[in-house]
């Protein structure tokens, strides 16, 4: 990489930081319980909009893994979600009615909160429908993973987003508040992913899965990105550039080995494809606040007539992290 492009990235990183600092004015504090955070706590940062049904399981899942404090930014929920969160002891909550899109899909808001509260901590930046799976997650808490990453000199953990879906149309599932979404959406695509390297940021660009297969079979370039780097030991110089797909400085994106070996990596199980999506799609097509004008929601609408939904006869049923490891969707690396 030349000095010029390095300088270009530096400028871009500074610009992201300035944006984040400027956008802090859009956030109104509802509850701030951050004084209770201790030095080694793992923190989670989330933007929500009308996710009440999902929140109880989300909190339960990450509390059990060992997340000690949650930072939520509520973007105009009307379903009582923020009120519910405000009562939780390990949640700090901000709210904003400004544009999600103009905050680069919440990235600016969360960058600010991480700069303010996350420096020196391992931080998880998540959507409320993303569930982190990492090697040995059934027996080793998140803190063990973070200690190990610290010891290995790693500052970030790479993951792939795996779209989980039910068999049959989404309208027919009934997700209950507090339920494990993967009791319903238990299927996934195990081996149809495409990977290339983004020369500018150094991150891998992964596409594929059921959305490419069903929504974009003729326009694969429009299929959503599945590469994510949600777990980062935060530093004041760091910014997420666009969602959690990539970060600056560039070195944080090098979560993969180029000499043939495998670094340790995880998966984010994506519980998007439930009946919750049906209403959301209708709303988002009107609202146009999502990536690339929410073209994904358009495609979803167009493809909803399929009788099996996203399911096909080659779909794989989810069992545990060891299965994902064997399938080559994540890796233990040298963690034994």
């Amino acid at each position: 990489m030349g000095a010029l492009s390095a300088y270009g990235l530096r400028i871009e990183r500074r610009r992201c930081q300035i944006r984040a600092i400027r956008k802090r004015r859009e956030l109104t504090r509802i509850v701030n319980r951050t004084e209770g955070i201790s030095e080694s706590d793992v923190l989670a940062f989330v933007t929500i909009r009308n996710e009440l049904r999902r929140l109880p399981f989300f909190l339960e899942y990450y509390r059990q893994l060992g997340v000690r404090h949650f930072f939520f930014v509520d973007n105009g929920s009307t379903d009582g979600g923020p009120e519910m969160l405000a009562d939780e002891d390990d949640v700090s909550l901000w709210s904003t009615s400004n544009s999600y899109r103009r905050s680069r899909f919440g990235t600016d808001w969360l960058n600010w909160l991480k700069l303010r509260y996350g420096v020196g901590h391992w931080t998880l930046t998540l959507d409320p429908d993303e569930f982190l799976i990492y090697p040995f997650c059934d027996s080793r808490p998140l803190l063990a993973l973070c200690d190990w990453l610290d010891q290995s000199g790693a500052r970030s953990l790479g993951t792939m987003l795996i779209d989980m879906y039910p068999r049959g149309p989404l309208e027919e599932v009934e997700y209950q508040t507090g339920q494990d979404p993967f009791e319903l959406a238990q299927w996934f695509d195990s081996g149809n992913y495409m990977i290339s390297k983004n020369p500018r940021y150094g991150n891998l660009w992964i596409q594929g899965g059921p959305r490419a297969r069903v929504y974009f079979p003729t326009e694969p370039e429009k299929a959503p990105s599945l590469n994510k780097i949600p777990l980062v030991k935060w530093d004041r110089r760091y910014v997420h550039v666009s969602s959690t797909h990539m970060l600056l400085p560039r070195g944080l994106n090098l979560v993969y080995d180029e000499a043939g070996g495998e670094k340790m990596s995880g998966c984010l199980l994506h519980a998007k494809f439930l009946d919750t999506l049906v209403d959301k799609a209708a709303e988002e097509i009107e609202r146009r606040e999502h990536f690339a004008g929410g073209r994904e929601y358009d495609a979803y609408h167009a493809a909803r007539s399929e009788p099996d939904g996203l399911w096909c006869q080659w779909s794989e049923r989810y069992i545990d992290w060891r299965q994902l490891e064997l399938l080559g969707l994540m890796s233990k690396g040298n963690w034994a």
Binding site: G158, L204, D257, A259, G260, K263, S265, S331, G333, N334
Partner: peptide, 29 residues
């Protein structure tokens, strides 16, 4: 053996598979 396997996974990986944490340069595979 268990620990040797872990090291070989990290240094050599599974040939012919690419993923979020394995993307070998063409000359390395």
């Amino acid at each position: 053996r268990m620990f040797i396997q872990a090291i070989s996974r990290r240094t050599r990986g599974r040939a012919g598979m690419v993923m979020a944490s394995r993307f070998p340069r063409t000359d390395c595979e």
